[in-house]
Design a protein around this nucleic acid. Sequence first.
DNA 1: GCGATATACATTGACAGGCGATGTAATGCG
DNA 2: CGCATTACATCGCCTGTCAATGTATATCGC
Lengths: 134, 134
Amino acid sequence: MALSADLLRGYTDTIILNRLREGDSYGYEINRKVSELSRGALELKEATLYTAFRRLESSGYIISYWGGEGSGARRRYYSITVEGRNRLAEDQAAWKETRRILDTLLNPEERRPVLQGRSGQEIPVIHVEDQSDE
Amino acid sequence: MALSADLLRGYTDTIILNRLREGDSYGYEINRKVSELSRGALELKEATLYTAFRRLESSGYIISYWGGEGSGARRRYYSITVEGRNRLAEDQAAWKETRRILDTLLNPEERRPVLQGRSGQEIPVIHVEDQSDE
DNA sequence: GCGATATACATTGACAGGCGATGTAATGCG
DNA sequence: CGCATTACATCGCCTGTCAATGTATATCGC
């Protein structure tokens, strides 16, 4: 099943940052790696990729430099900045939260509902039973 | 943390369908329920809600009718159709897939590594007691 | 040497979903 | 009566995705 990257809208930047966390890289390679890690389920389109790079760089989350000449076409390498790492950490936290919310809102438990507020004082579990027929 | 609903783009329709699965309802109520279930983390904006209703209805996933007069403002009730249920099932499957991919692409393993074989057999769910709060 | 292919980067314009702003209307309460 | 609450609705802007298109270099087969 090829994921419609529409459901991933907004995560492209985070995906790139997380890739860069493991070391500098360039567009084409990042793309291959992403599709490899996702088993081909996610193929970032080039236009999406490169607009993301521009967005990230102009926001200071990554910086770029030319390199790799002599072994194929020229490459523009990207490097994650400190701000980028911070942004990545926030994004990862946001993803966990989003995942939790969507799990409860869309149902597919299987991971079990998470009903913990940050203050902890909030209500115990209200039984939301779920028989699919009616 | 209030979720930027930008990260939820594309899921609004599914959230609504899943709510309707439990019975007919109307905009205002659905909205309250969603924010209750998410503990206030997700507040669907009215513009978002009602455009979603129009989208869903014109696609045949829901149908609407007026009702509830006499007890406040008039309400437009929505009912999920058979097509809507099918669509919902697909969306839920897509969410599981998306979740899996994003978990591997964004890293936050923490619950279980996602390295299952292509063959589709699920990883045996490891029983993780979920009492820790972050 | 030459065309095909793969690598690699880049921009433009269209499209779709979310949402702020704004408007309408009915009911209930003090 | 005035105001809050409930409830629905639309317009126009913004942002991220992506098809289409273009450029350039290196390698491989013939």
